[in-house]
């Protein structure tokens, strides 16, 4: 039953995305940036999903350190991995947009640099997990590292407010706005990305459960 719900949610997310690509393609050009601007419809929802995943990873890591319950550890690794995939897409789509609008693939401004540091930190989190064999030690070290890594998340989000950056100012919380039909498509993409993220996290959580079952079976085999 749980699997069927996941498949249905995944298909709904993909259908929304596919329908939205068609709808976004029909929207008129933006006056300054032309059609390249439409990358924002994927770039921003990816980052929103990635930052949501980072917040969830922080909560799960704190949850593990407080309760020592391994379900929190599984949740932390699941959301971090999915969040890292979204962060990768956010960085790549942003870079492609920058190449067309700025004429460069990359610049070391505060937003881009903090975003890259965020990617490196969460990639480091996953590498750290691979490096430690003992489960309790692995979960504890990883939780502490995840809390440390979260320090970068507000820097990524607010860097464009705190410093003068080449990255554009936010459209929605700096007085700017979209035409209403653009906002609708943007929000649908946001919903689809979050839905897709939830499905991926649920699948990844199931894999962590399977990994725990394997560990337990191995211990039983070793004891016999």
């Amino acid at each position: 039953m749980r699997e069927k719900i996941l498949y249905v949610l995944g298909i709904v997310a993909l259908l929304i995305l596919a329908w939205n690509i068609n709808a976004i393609a029909r929207l008129p050009e933006e006056t300054q940036q032309g059609v390249t601007f439409k990358i924002i419809f994927f770039h921003v929802p990816m980052w929103a999903a990635a930052m949501t995943a980072a917040c969830a990873a922080l909560l799960a890591s704190v949850g593990f350190l407080v309760t020592k319950n391994f379900r929190f550890d599984a949740a932390a690794v699941a959301v971090t991995e999915v969040g890292l995939a979204f962060t990768t897409v956010g960085l790549v789509t942003g870079s492609i947009w920058g190449r067309e609008i700025w004429g460069i693939w990359w610049t070391w401004d505060a937003r881009l640099t903090s975003a890259l540091v965020c990617w490196l930190l969460y990639a480091g989190y996953l590498m750290l997990r691979k490096a430690i064999e003992e489960p309790t030690q692995r979960a504890t070290f990883a939780a502490v590292f995840s809390i440390f890594a979260f320090i970068d998340v507000p820097i990524v989000v607010f860097s464009i407010k705190w410093w003068r950056t080449q990255h554009p100012q936010p459209v929605f919380w700096a007085g700017g706005s979209f035409p209403p039909d653009w906002t609708t498509h943007f929000l649908w993409n946001m919903v689809a990305m979050l839905l897709f993220g939830i499905v991926m996290v649920a699948v990844r959580l199931r894999q962590e459960e399977a990994q725990r079952e394997i560990d337990s079976l191995r211990r039983t085999a070793h004891a016999q």
Partner: peptide, 19 residues
Amino acid sequence: LQHQYEFLSYGLTAAWVIL
């Protein structure tokens, strides 16, 4: 317009390929 559509398609393709 063609140039811009090219970059828009690169962006969309990259997003889908990574996912």
